[in-house]
Design a protein around this nucleic acid. Sequence first.
DNA 1: CATAGAAGTGAGTAATCACTCACAAATCTA
DNA 2: TAGATTTGTGAGTGATTACTCACTTCTATG
Lengths: 186, 186
Amino acid sequence: MTNKEQILHTALRLFAEQGYDRTPTSQIAREAGVSEGLIFRHYGNKAGLLAAILGAGKAQVDESMQPYARDLDPRAAIAQHIRESIRLVREHRPFWRLVHQMRHQAAVQQAAEPEIDHFHRDIATRLSANFRRLGAAQPELEALLLFAQIDGITLQYLEAPDSYPLDAMQHFLIQKYHDEPFLDQP
Amino acid sequence: MTNKEQILHTALRLFAEQGYDRTPTSQIAREAGVSEGLIFRHYGNKAGLLAAILGAGKAQVDESMQPYARDLDPRAAIAQHIRESIRLVREHRPFWRLVHQMRHQAAVQQAAEPEIDHFHRDIATRLSANFRRLGAAQPELEALLLFAQIDGITLQYLEAPDSYPLDAMQHFLIQKYHDEPFLDQP
DNA sequence: CATAGAAGTGAGTAATCACTCACAAATCTA
DNA sequence: TAGATTTGTGAGTGATTACTCACTTCTATG
């Protein structure tokens, strides 16, 4: 691993553990085994380092969410979305901890926001379409609710990864959507 | 309003808007119209100010969650829980923004954590009991899932209070739990 | 009124932090 | 190998920040 990558990984770990504001660049340099100046040579400033971390993570998400864009039958697509979302969080815990922190920092989101917004709308549109095909009375609200459920589950998992029953919740949620009739109106 | 209260309210507003770490005590003093020294006379240090804010908010939550502790029929209790949770967030937006920020700062939770843990367990127990009485196959998971849904909805509302359809989501969620048979196993 | 304690001030301080810069070492290129 | 470019260093700097403290003003009480 190059020094540049080493800095990125160390910073991600420390930002996730301690928070962006509470992590001095001096600590990142020390734990990455490089001089502090090198951080600024490679990433310009501390915010640039954060942007690089978020950019790299987003690339991975894009890659992972693309394959299942193809049209499965609606119920399978919904189950797949649940599985994939939870898998991402489980496999990239530090990254998602950082993302959740950033959600409450209006000032830092600057550049990342429009892209993330578009990404969300994209998924929400696909999900709504699937619920509509299943005959749901209010497909947009169904999509929002599923979003909220995954958000809440992953949030609580990230707070206590060792004790939270993530597997059980995943299966429980998938089963609920498998059994749901979605035919509320005659 | 006394100066002491003025400091508390100003700090809550600024912490919620900018984050705890990004809000200097000098700014709090300036916007509260007092000297910086007064903050430390009343609250000892910056963390003490934060603790006072969280303590005052928790007292309000306790007060609001107590009345409906009495045993209604299970479905009514669940609906009431949803309504009350969402009402609290809607009426104390800055406070809940702050709470959500603090959830990711392991270091700051120190004192508040045991109390909050107990509080959560208490509500989870009551919710599980209600789901059990309704014949749910996995009442603990049902309680966790309802928790996660409310968490996710309020989180997304706090991110975009002006555009999120909070009322619609509340009614949608209550209706779902009203219609849910909860008799998954023969 | 006298006086004790609480409320309030604001200049000062030590520490921390992000960032710079002059320079050195390593790597590449011709 | 000579020169050019990239990578790396670490002491230094200015700005910011939480907090202190000697002092003043207000308020309550006998």
